[in-house]
Amino acid sequence: MPPKSTVSLRRRRLGTELRKLRDAKGLRLEDVAEHVGWNKAKLSRIELARVGLRRHDLHSLLDLYEADAATRAALDALVLDGTERRWWMRYADLISVAYQEFIAYEAEASHIQDVNFSIIPGLLQSPDYARAVITAGPFITDPDDVDGLVLVRGRRQAVLTDEAPVRLTAVVPEAALHQHVGGAAVLRGQLAHLLERAELPNVSLSVLPFAATGGAYVGGVTLFHFAQTGDPSMVFLEYQGGTTLLDTDREISRYQRLFDHVLRQTLSEDDSFRLIEQRRKTL
């Protein structure tokens, strides 16, 4: 049975392994492209996980690279049939390709580090708060889409409570505890939801206080880390209107330093819990 992983991750693994096999044979992109009858750009896109690969074409490459039986079986399992989908594909008419990719990595990650300097992170939002955030944005053009977008955000949160839950390290700005997104009642419910999520053993939640100097960044930063050593970490930057994916070692290190810098200035988890509870009671 193929491994349970997302389209994007399978492509990354497959591209990485094919590049390693090519390098081991001392072949250039031009050499391989000429042998299999492709252009150089196509092979490059496959190795960079920009496009998928048919099983027949994979076997042509593995023949050229003289891959052993174990390698063939492992890489063959990474080739997706065209009909395979994930739950979020049902909402492809509502969510952008970038958002689909974000959800795909989120679903596969073993550890997520998430900080948003303006609002509660999506994995910790209550349905009412999520609805208020979605409808407050200037990029929602069709009110009929709102219910679906709220549902997508709720379904994403299953990664926190399924049989093998992801480990989440989340930083919440103190300002988000005071901003009446959706009104006082919605915020009160959100803070109660936040306290409930903080009780999960796989969730580490801390508050970045007003007095901290680490909150100058505007937007959100999410780092995805994966259990398999062959899957390098990924960074998603969230800003008004979209997200940007970063995957180079330099960029990952840069934003890991940012997250660590912010985390050092947060309140402890216990103090954060007490602050959230105190704020909830005043609403």
Rank of each mutant, 00 (worst) to 15 (best):
D68N: 15
D68S: 03
D68H: 06
A69G: 07
A69K: 13
A69I: 07
A69C: 07
A70M: 04
A70P: 02
A70R: 02
R72N: 00
A73H: 06
A73D: 10
A74I: 07
A74W: 02
L75N: 07
L75W: 06
L75A: 08
L75I: 02
D76M: 00
A77V: 00
L78N: 06
L78E: 10
L78P: 01
L78Q: 07
V79I: 05
V79T: 00
L80S: 15
L80V: 06
L80K: 14
L80D: 15
D81W: 01
D81I: 03
D81G: 15
D81T: 05
D81P: 15
G82F: 04
G82A: 11
T83V: 06
T83D: 14
T83A: 14
E84L: 07
E84D: 11
E84K: 12
E84I: 03
E84Y: 11
E84H: 11
E84Q: 13
E84M: 07
E84V: 05
E84N: 05
E84S: 03
E84C: 03
R85L: 09
R85G: 11
R85N: 08
R86V: 01
R86K: 10
R86W: 13
W87V: 01
W87N: 04
W87Q: 10
W87K: 05
W88E: 01
W88R: 01
W88H: 10
W88F: 10
W88N: 00
W88A: 03
M89L: 04
M89I: 02
M89K: 15
M89F: 13
M89Y: 13
R90V: 02
R90N: 14
Y91F: 11
Y91L: 01
A92N: 10
A92H: 08
A92D: 10
A92K: 07
A92S: 13
A92G: 09
D93N: 14
D93M: 09
D93E: 13
D93A: 09
D93V: 04
D93C: 09
D93I: 01
L94A: 06
L94F: 07
L94M: 07
L94N: 08
I95T: 05
I95E: 12
I95D: 09
I95C: 08
I95A: 08
S96Y: 05
S96A: 04
S96V: 00
V97I: 12
V97R: 15
A98P: 14
